Amino acid sequence: MHDVLDPDSDRGRVYQSLVRHPHQSAGELAARTGLAEAAVRAVLDELAAEDGVVTTDPGSAGAVWEAVPPTQLVEALLRRDDALRTALRRTGAELERLYRSARRDSTHYGALEVVEDLARVLAISRQLQQTARHQLRSIDVPPYSGTPDFYLAQEALQRERMAAGVTYRAIYPGSAFDDPIAWPNMARMIEAGEQARTLDDPPLKLSLRDDDLAVVTLAADERPGVVSLVIRPSSLLQGLSNVFESLWRLAVPVSAAGIGTQIDARDRQILSLMASGATDDAIARHLGVGRRTVVRRVSALLAGLGATTRFQAGVQAARRGWL
């Protein structure tokens, strides 16, 4: 939600317009921000759900909106950040305890099973997908232990499961764009319907089936290969689920739109100026075009890059070699 404080994000434009001009309708906000009215309504619904704005007539086409006081909003953001850090520290400490405990006695924690055989590790990965009912969430980081044929079979199974209605959400490391195994797989799966995001240096390799099974895969300590920790319903499983959702909110969306494509010189200039912190007005003056033209191009670039903020757009553009 931090982008509500970014004056160059859509949410930031809408919120700060309400700060300056109270009691505005969606149509009035669209005129002030240069955004489409449908986009403004979507932003208002999001901000209302997050207690950033309020209205006295929800659901009405003529509803008038008001901003929550900025100090109240900032305090709420700080409380959420504190809660996130506390949850991450608590889960990390629990993982560390169980990690060390599992290496002394695999029966010490009833919800945990240690799997060291590579063939079974790969079989568990496949079984997770085959038995998922609603969704499969994953953090996909090295080590990669399968053969090329295994990954091709995994792609086929994922397409089959997505066609059956199972939602896939995956977090990849930023380095995945340069990985000869991860990047081609990521691009194909996104185009097939996977929801993907990237995060610099994710903390662990994790798969979550619905809300009832998790697998953490680690490099083996005293030999080549990997070890998997299979976690069944428990406070640890809930903690891992919370960690995934927290990291998902922090990660940068990756869009299938524009994968492998190039952009023209003007869009490259716009992206470079955005990355340097220039406002729409400054970009328009620099390029000698109208502000509305810049607003339209920025919106199109954000959509094409799967980004919701200029910072995310800059990260995505740099990773694709556009800057």
Rank of each mutant, 00 (worst) to 15 (best):
T217G: 05
L136T: 07
S276R: 15
A63E: 07
G92N: 02
S138M: 15
R85Q: 06
I171R: 02
Y151K: 03
D212F: 11
A36I: 00
F177S: 12
R80L: 05
P58A: 06
H2Y: 08
P173S: 12
L122T: 05
R310K: 09
R126F: 14
G314R: 05
S276F: 03
M1V: 10
V53C: 10
Q316R: 15
A317K: 01
T33V: 11
G193F: 11
D8M: 08
V215C: 14
A275Y: 02
R32P: 06
G306W: 05
S207G: 01
A170S: 14
V166M: 08
A36Q: 14
R297F: 06
L29E: 09
R13P: 07
G174P: 01
L47V: 03
P7G: 10
G314P: 01
V226Y: 02
Q72F: 00
L157T: 03
V298P: 04
D264G: 15
I259L: 15
Q24W: 04
S272P: 01
L84D: 13
W183A: 15
F244M: 06
R20E: 13
D57E: 14
T308K: 12
L35K: 01
A284I: 11
V216A: 00
L95D: 01
A300K: 08
A61E: 11
A282G: 07
E155P: 03
A303T: 13
L118R: 14
L73E: 09
D10N: 13
L35H: 04
T147A: 11
S234A: 04
